[in-house]
Every structure is written in structure tokens, then in C-alpha cells.
Design a binder for these strands. Sequence first.
DNA 1: ATTGGGGCCCGTCAATCGGA
DNA 2: TCCGATTGACGGGCCCCAAT
Length: 368
Amino acid sequence: MPGFGGKQLEMDGSIDDKSEDSPSSSGSSQPQNLSTVVHTITAVPTAIPNQPVQVQSVIQPTQQSVIQAAGQIQTVQVEEDGEGHLVRTDPDIEKRREILSRRPSYRKILNELSSAEAPGIAKIEEDKEEEAAITSIQTTIPSYVQTSGQYGGYCIKEPTEPPSHQLPIIYGPPVPLPPARMQDSSKVRGIGDASQDSSSYKKVTAGQTIQIAAANQNELTTQGLQTITMTNAGQGAVTAAAMPAGTTIVQYTQGDGSQQFVTVPVSISPAGEVQAYQIRAPSSLPAGVVMATPTGITSPQQLAEESARKRELRLMKNREAARECRRRKKEYVKCLETRVAVLEQQNKTLIEELKSLKELYCHKAETE
DNA sequence: ATTGGGGCCCGTCAATCGGA
DNA sequence: TCCGATTGACGGGCCCCAAT
């Protein structure tokens, strides 16, 4: 894959850029032209006060070695290639190179870095939203289906506790929100009653996020519902062709992590209000709520609807994936910036140490 | 007040890779 | 081989700011 394939190798405090920037040249994680000379570099904490790091080595230590050197002796094994370059051959580095040469991923890169090298750097949280959703369910109606162009919200929490066996639905009256950027789908919350009566419809406004909270965690796990993402393409001008009018896809994550999709009949008023929708546990899907993979499709119209539905699902998932990817990329860049700052500070420290050692040496030579 | 540029974010497409 | 995940590239919209 183009892009970050070779870049992340620079993050381990490279010893020999040549060997790391061109992993393909050697064809393996180990340089081919290494001599048999093996150096052992020992990082020794010195007694100089107010020096955060003192590393007695010709090799620029990695961030991990810095941290370890502050408290203990660290041994780093290096080898010398044919041109006099020192090449570190830690098993960890070998492993990392192998991993990174297989597939670059911001998540993998950062997690590798944060676990192995920089305990201070936060890991990319995997599926944070999913974990956070254990006690809540969010449904999102994309803002592009809004026809009024206004931002609204649902911020009123109803104090009534839903019956434990029912899936609560949260709702409330729209409230004005500050102007948001174009893509922001004003996420709001509310709470309400969850009725299994199919005649009981809740009114929400398209372009909003409504959160469905469980009375307790067990309720959700027993029902197998953790997250719900609601995408409406019914009457949105952008995606009117993508799905038949009045259909909304509801994505939810089950307790075992698998994702399921259902379609829910929805109608949207010209003002952008969802006139009716139902959300139920998958085990009790009523008439009118159809699983996303229907069987027995015969007519061309059904085929078109099915393909449109699949396309909508694909786009929705890719939208989420792109969002996550950008988030990881930002974390990655932040990590790089942190690394740069650390290395700059380290470089400064080493320069200072070199200067003081030179002065000490000159002074000693003069006195002799 | 208008305008143009830069930055940021998003959605979408396409390519690639790894696992089943 | 197929499918899902990942990510670069592209285009578009919005916001901010400086210049006019």
C-alpha cells in the first residue's frame, strides 16, 4: 500500500536510516550485508543531576531506551554493516519491522509504539464508541436528509424508567443548537418511554442523534443490543435514489460483537421530521420491520431496492471507516510530533553533555 | 461588504491487503 | 476466491482571516 509503509519505521529512533528506509532492498528484516562484528551498547545512568537522560552510547536511543536508561542499565545489541553503519538488531525491532512491512495501519503503528516504546502515549482506543454504548444506544439520522436546514435537538430527559424488558426510546422536543459545521449531525439526547405497542410512535427530527438508554446493562446484553446507527435515505435529496422512500436502515451491534442491519419503515415530513419509526429487539421484529437480507426477491424492483440497500450499507460503513481512519491518522501525527519533541530534547541534552565533557577533557589536558 | 486563499472536515471511490 | 478492513486521493462545503 502506498503511503505510510516505510514511514513508521522512522519512529523507533532509527540507527541507520539506510537500512530502515528501504526494507525492500534487503528483502527481509535483517540487512544482508552485515558483518559479524557485534557491538554491545550499554546505556548507563550517570550521576549528573538535573539531566533527565544520560545515555552513554554512540547510538541515538529510542524513547524507550531513554526511559529505561534513567533507572537501569539497558543493553542494546547492534551489528555493523559493510559500510561501517551500526544497525541495531533487537528482537523487538525485528518483530516490529516484520509486522509493519506486512501492513501499515495507524492503529497498529500507534498501539505498537505506545505499548512497546512510550508508555506515556495513549493507545488508540479500539471501538471506544462500541464499548461506551454498552449502556446506551444511539441512532443517527444523517443531516443530509434534513429539508428545513435548521438544527434541532432533543435534550429533555424523561424521568420515567422504562420497563426492564422493553427497549427504551428516548425522545424530546427540538431545542436550538449553536451553528455547527456542515457535516455535523447535531447529536442530542433525550429519553422516553419504550412501548412495544406498535401503534405507539415517537416523533423525532431528521438530522439528529437520539440516544436510547437502557435501564441497566443486563437489559441490553440480554437483548443482544449494544449500538444502533440509524441511517435514513428515504427522502433525502442526496440519496433519494439509493433507497426506496420511507426506508431506514438500523444497524445494531449484538452482544457478541456481530453487526446486524434491519430496515424500518419511516416517513419524513417536508420539515424534516420523522413521522414514525420503530425499534425493537431483533428477536421480536414485528411486521413491517424486515431484515436487511430478504429472501425470495423476484421482481426487478426488489432487486434494485436490494442493491440500493446494499450500497447504502456499504457507504455507511465506509463513512464510519473513513472517520475512524482519520482519527487514527491524527493520533499518529500527534504521536510523531511528540516523538519529535522528545528527540529534540534528547538531542539538546546530549549536545550539552558533549560540551561539558569536552570542557572537562580540555581542562584536564591543560592541567597536566 | 466582498472576495480569495488556506485550513479543516466529510463523504465517496478505488486500490490493496489479510483472513476465512 | 471472496469479503471486510484500511487508507490515499479527490471533490465539496464551511469557517476564518486578510486584502480590497
